[in-house]
């Protein structure tokens, strides 16, 4: 199995943890993993990404344009920024919640992410939008963005990993007090997709 996965968002949103969980799950299945991510200045509110490459015969941890099987967007605008990486027939999972940059607030912009979501839906066939404000409110926590998106990615089938793979890696990598909440987030994402929202 070869999968190219792009995670993207704004510094501080938790893309790195999601990337670690996917790599951990792949490793548990004996699948080779290479990855690359943004570290440094851009982590301070800048655009950040993780590239993950699962499978054999991979030389470089970076993904070429038009080669990603899936983009997991933690922010609508950032998902659009990474769209050139998506291959034909690829999957997009995206959070509906915009993160307004200071530059936009200063300019008096009403950036709310909706035109970004419209653009993705117009250009890509396989799109799952997660209404994260609603999901976080239903789950009673703002800390589940990454598990919601990861759960949706698993359910879409585009990761090539199953929900049990992610549950196992949560148990081994995340402090036990967060397990129940994270499992609920995975389950929530599954229900959203089962309902075909």
């Amino acid at each position: 199995m070869n999968k190219n996965i792009v995670l993207c968002g704004v510094g501080g949103q938790g893309t790195v943890l999601a990337s670690k969980l996917i790599s951990g799950a792949a490793m548990n299945r004996g699948i080779p993993v290479k990855s690359a991510e943004t570290i440094g200045m851009a982590q301070r509110g800048g655009s950040v990404f993780s590239h993950l490459r699962l499978g054999d015969n991979v030389d470089c941890p970076m993904i070429a344009k038009g080669a990603a099987d899936i983009i997991i967007g933690f922010e609508p605008g950032e998902a659009v920024r990474m769209l050139p990486y998506l291959k034909r027939g690829g999957q997009v999972i995206v959070s509906s919640k915009p993160v307004m940059p200071v530059t936009a607030a200063l300019a008096g912009s009403n950036y709310n992410g909706s035109e970004m979501l419209d653009y993705i839906k117009a250009k890509v066939d396989n799109v799952i939008v997660i209404d994260t404000p609603k999901a976080c409110s239903d789950l009673g926590s703002t800390k589940v963005l990454n598990l919601l998106l990861l759960g949706a990615a698993v359910e879409s089938g585009a990761l090539g990993l199953c929900s049990e793979d992610i549950r196992q890696v949560i148990v081994s990598r995340i402090p036990s007090r967060f397990h129940e909440l994270n499992f609920r987030a995975l389950e929530y994402a599954k229900n959203v997709i089962d309902k075909g929202v």
């Binding site: 704004v10 510094g11 501080g12 200045m41 851009a42 982590q43 301070r44 509110g45 800048g46 655009s47 344009k65 038009g66 080669a67 605008g77 659009v80 920024r81 769209l83 050139p84 990486y85 998506l86 291959k87 034909r88 027939g89 690829g90 993160v99 307004m100 940059p101 200071v102 530059t103 936009a104 950036y111 035109e115 970004m116 653009y119 250009k123 890509v124």
Partner: peptide, 24 residues
Amino acid sequence: DSAAVAGNELAEMPVLPVRPPVLC
């Protein structure tokens, strides 16, 4: 070109938010 959004279509992309690194 194997991209979902072909190069010539990218021109239609909405203006993306600019995110220079900022103090937290």
